[in-house]
């Protein structure tokens, strides 16, 4: 069994299509992400990158195709189940619990029981507190722990969201445009953070910022019109004439 698990890729998409009112947002898309791999995904606006994440996380149901996570069919599960299977997702627009403190944001995201009644009577263990402190240190918000999330800057919210994903301790992290609206310095820091994270889990990053992708230095997939246009190292992809044509421009 374990042998089987090792051989199956972590995430496996094959022949996935989805159409909205006849418009094919994803068209026969295939993608494989291995255990521990970090993958960067680029592509023009409307290429279907976010939609692909919607499909993986159960927000959108594909019309056709296979979506497997550790060999399990994701199309049979809903968002909460998929999240509990070990897939975390950062939204394109930072989404945190604005009316809670940073600490509470992390507390709610922390790995553990998702049962309603247990949540009613739950108390925090010292372990949990420690873990939250660790994450706070990683996302550089140690001394803002009691600040309301609503009061954070855009970049800080992005980081808090990543922190919440870390707290969830997923096997696969889907990150949609993590550095949009960040300064160059912040971008570099984020790249560092993601590389750090990818040591212990698989990460899929969607980004338009080419220097950021370069910083990540991982395998790149270029999507266009809902299908894979090119795949390989950044140099390989960026020299692909099809990619230049449809995305990078001459």
């Amino acid at each position: 069994m374990s042998k089987f698990l090792e051989n199956t890729p972590l995430l496996y998409l094959d022949g996935v299509s989805v159409a909205f009112d006849g418009f094919k947002a994803i068209n026969n898309l295939s993608l494989v992400v291995e255990h521990g791999e970090m993958r960067a995904i680029i592509g023009p606006n409307g290429a279907g990158k976010t939609t692909m994440m919607d499909i993986i996380t159960g927000k959108t149901r594909p019309d056709h195709g296979t979506v497997l996570f550790e060999g399990q069919d994701l199309t049979l599960h809903d968002e909460a189940q998929i999240a509990n299977m070990g897939i975390g997702r950062k939204f394109q627009k930072p989404t945190v619990f604005e009316n809670h403190s940073i600490y509470d944001n992390l507390l709610l995201a922390l790995k553990g029981s998702r049962n309603v009644f247990q949540a009613l009577f739950s108390t925090q263990s010292t372990e949990q507190k420690q873990r939250i402190d660790e994450i706070l240190a990683v996302i550089r918000l140690e001394n803002r722990r009691d600040t309301l999330a609503a009061d954070l800057s855009h970049g800080q919210k992005q980081w808090l969201e990543i922190g919440m994903l870390l707290a969830q301790d997923p096997k696969l992290l889907l990150v949609d445009e993590p550095v949009a609206g960040m300064t160059d310095a912040e971008t570099v820091e984020t790249a560092k953070l993601l590389r750090e994270i990818s040591k212990t889990r698989s990460v899929v990053v969607v980004e338009h910022d080419m220097s950021f992708i370069r910083d990540l230095d991982v395998k790149v997939t270029c999507l266009a019109e809902g299908a894979v246009l090119s795949e390989g190292s950044l140099n390989h992809v960026s020299s692909d004439p099809k990619v230049i044509e449809s995305y990078l421009g001459r």
């Binding site: 999240a83 619990f97 604005e98």
Partner: peptide, 11 residues
């Protein structure tokens, strides 16, 4: 405030 975030967190 953020229903979908709660859902994607696994609740």
């Amino acid at each position: 405030h953020a229903e979908s975030r709660v859902r994607f967190t696994g609740y």
